[in-house]
């Protein structure tokens, strides 16, 4: 009866920003990124990609509540970088990785189809 609409889980409401940025006031080079209408899929890949960055001292994400359709990614970096820089780098690297994966997959499909009568 009072259940939220199903689309609430993935449609960003009008007037709301997809990503907002909140700097930590107490620790230098620490910040949180609040991402609306995303969940573990994005949270986990971004977090793991951030862990590869040696300038990232801490990276974690949380889904605060199953009915709050947002995730929070928290990043703490060394002075060699900044949370925003690390975040952008992680997304760019993941994007490039997926580009590579797509072409590798397409090549492999062509390769597989040509070796077999399919």
């Amino acid at each position: 009866m009072n259940a939220p609409d199903r689309y609430e889980r993935f449609v960003v409401p009008e007037g709301t920003k997809k990503v907002s940025y909140e700097r930590d006031t107490k620790i230098i080079n620490a910040a949180s990124f609040i991402i609306e209408r995303e969940e573990h899929t994005i949270g986990n890949i971004v977090r793991m990609q951030l862990h590869l960055d040696e300038n990232v001292l801490f990276a974690g994400y949380k889904l605060p509540h199953p009915l709050q359709y947002k995730i929070i990614i928290r990043i703490h970096t060394t002075s060699q970088s900044s949370p925003m820089q690390a975040y952008n780098l992680a997304i760019n690297d993941l994007d490039k990785e997926l580009d590579h994966l797509r072409s590798a997959f397409e090549d492999e499909i062509a390769n597989y189809s040509s070796t077999r009568e399919y």
Binding site: K17, V19, V46, L98, R102
Partner: peptide, 22 residues
């Protein structure tokens, strides 16, 4: 799925006005 995941990543890029706030 690869394409959708790319689109999702693209959607969570920081917008220019957020960068200014930095």
């Amino acid at each position: 799925a690869i394409e959708i995941l790319k689109q999702k990543l693209d959607a969570v890029r920081l917008s220019d006005d957020t960068v200014e706030a930095d």
